[in-house]
Design a protein around this nucleic acid. Structure first.
Length: 404
RNA sequence: GCGCAGGUGGCAGAGUGGUCAAUUGCAACUGGCUGUAAACCAGUCGCCCUAUGGGCUACGGGGGUUCAAAUCCCUCCCUGCGCACCA
């Protein structure tokens, strides 16, 4: 494999979406310029099928490394997933079956395909499962690993300090997590790990272990987390409902990006699109101008991102659909169709189809004037049941075609 | 093992016998406005019913006291803190 050492490309990788590089940016640059092939890995916990734009950032960078000719490894944390990373605040220990993990992995790789050429002919991505080695370790091995760290080092972590202050439990097995993730580095013999800022501690544990067991300097490449520059809130939060997930349809993804806060736009351009630094600079200037319309810039952002995952055509039709539905208050082209049985009341059919959660909710929606027909006339009778085919608008976002 | 403090709706967190389907904040949903599903303002936010009313289910699990319990008692499970133990 021929290793590309073009300085401009390397500089771009080392600056864009980078939070921190350990031990230093300079030492990594030196390695990258040396022409030696590096083995770079990223860990992915198979806890759920959902991958969002924040994850994508990492894989975008990983792909850039791969194109330079470096060996890229995606580690599926099927073993670690069972323990539950304590970094994730309450991390209920969900026990996943091997089968579920395999399923998740399949959907993941599918979602990653638009970003990273996993099956590239010359330099394919290697996919490994840490259950293959972690599940075979003995108690003795684990104790040996554990002896590399002190309790104080573990307790130093912010989240533990916080939990102690708040009298929240800290489980013993949580200390094992950095050990496991760290051992992955040893087993794989990697030169670098890529991770988000939340994984810094774990990655550093791996650095320590790699030094001791492999006599190797492992680099840690930490990418920025997607967070609101003003409120510091996570952009891709499932609980906040702001996440943009890679398995979303083009329309859904487009809408979710449009729902991002204005102040998030620039970072999303940097971390989640392939626009060049020059183009992004131009956008930044436009954003600063008083006469510019943030809506249009956000639409550009949405288009660029959706394009990556669904192609330009789908992105364009998502944009058109969005304008038609929300800017002009129309009805999108493809609406859910519900066939109403003979004598079946409309509310029952809607609940059954999962359009609304309950009939009580339906009543409230009617009362608040949220339900309209295609000609914008309001439905005021909660028992309204059409006897011809109609299109119902429920709020701005829900549309159902009721057919008989 | 002992003592003390806790376990409440998607989350955080009030309530300590009836006025509690449960204050408030976040999230969600709807309306208004707009530059969009941004922001802001307002409303809604357990379920079911032929409904300015009625019924059912819910405050860790189970049992009890009472006309009446999220609230009192018993018991079990879980968590934190302190003490004790520490080969």
């Amino acid at each position: 494999m021929n290793i590309i050492t073009e300085e401009k490309a390397i500089d771009e990788i080392l600056t864009r979406s980078v939070q921190e590089i350990l031990p230093s940016k300079e030492s990594l640059k030196k390695e990258l310029m040396s022409g030696r092939q590096l083995k770079i890995y990223i860990g992915a916990d198979a806890t759920g099928p959902a991958l969002h734009l924040g994850h994508a950032t990492n894989y975008i960078i990983l792909e850039k490394f791969r194109r330079l000719g470096h060996k890229v490894v995606i580690l599926i944390g099927d073993f670690t997933a069972r323990i539950g990373d304590p970094t994730d605040k309450t991390a209920a220990r969900v026990q996943l079956t091997r089968k579920q993990v395999v399923e998740h992995t399949k959907t993941w790789l599918k979602q990653l395909l638009p970003i990273i050429s996993i099956n590239d002919e010359d330099n394919p991505v290697e996919i490994v499962y840490n259950d293959d080695w972690l599940s075979k370790m003995t108690f003795e091995n684990v104790i040996n690993l554990a002896s590399n760290f002190t309790v104080q080092q573990m307790l130093e972590r912010d989240m533990y300090q916080k939990r102690m202050k708040e009298n929240k439990p800290i489980y013993l097995h949580e200390f094992m997590y950095p050990l496991m993730q760290g051992y992955d580095s040893v087993h794989l013999g990697v030169d670098m790990e890529m991770c988000g800022n939340d994984q810094k501690f774990n990655a550093l544990a791996g650095r320590t272990l790699a030094q001791r067991y492999n006599k190797k300097e492992k680099f840690v490449f930490i990418t920025t987390l997607l967070e609101n520059p003003v409120t510091k809130e996570k952009m891709m939060s499932k609980s906040l409902g702001t996440g943009v997930f890679l398995d979303m349809s083009a329309d859904e993804m487009y809408g979710k990006i449009m729902a991002q806060h204005d102040e998030n736009m620039l970072q999303l351009f940097i971390d989640c699109t392939y626009l060049t630094a020059e183009e992004i600079l131009k956008i930044k200037e436009t954003l600063g101008r008083k006469d510019s319309n943030p809506r249009d810039i956000k639409a550009r952002l949405a288009f660029e991102i959706v394009k990556i995952y669904h192609g330009a055509d789908a992105a364009q039709s998502a944009a058109d659909g969005f304008d038609k539905t929300f800017a002009k208050g129309g009805v999108p082209d493809d609406v859910l169709e519900i066939k109403l049985g003979d004598g079946e009341p409309l509310p029952d059919a809607l609940v059954k189809a999962g359009v609304i959660p309950s009939k009580a909710e339906w009543r409230r929606l009617i009362e608040s004037g949220a339900v309209r027909l295609e000609d914008d006339s309001k439905v005021v009778d909660p028992h309204f049941t059409p006897n011809v085919t109609v299109i119902l608008k429920i709020g701005k976002r829900r549309f159902v075609k009721i057919s008989r």
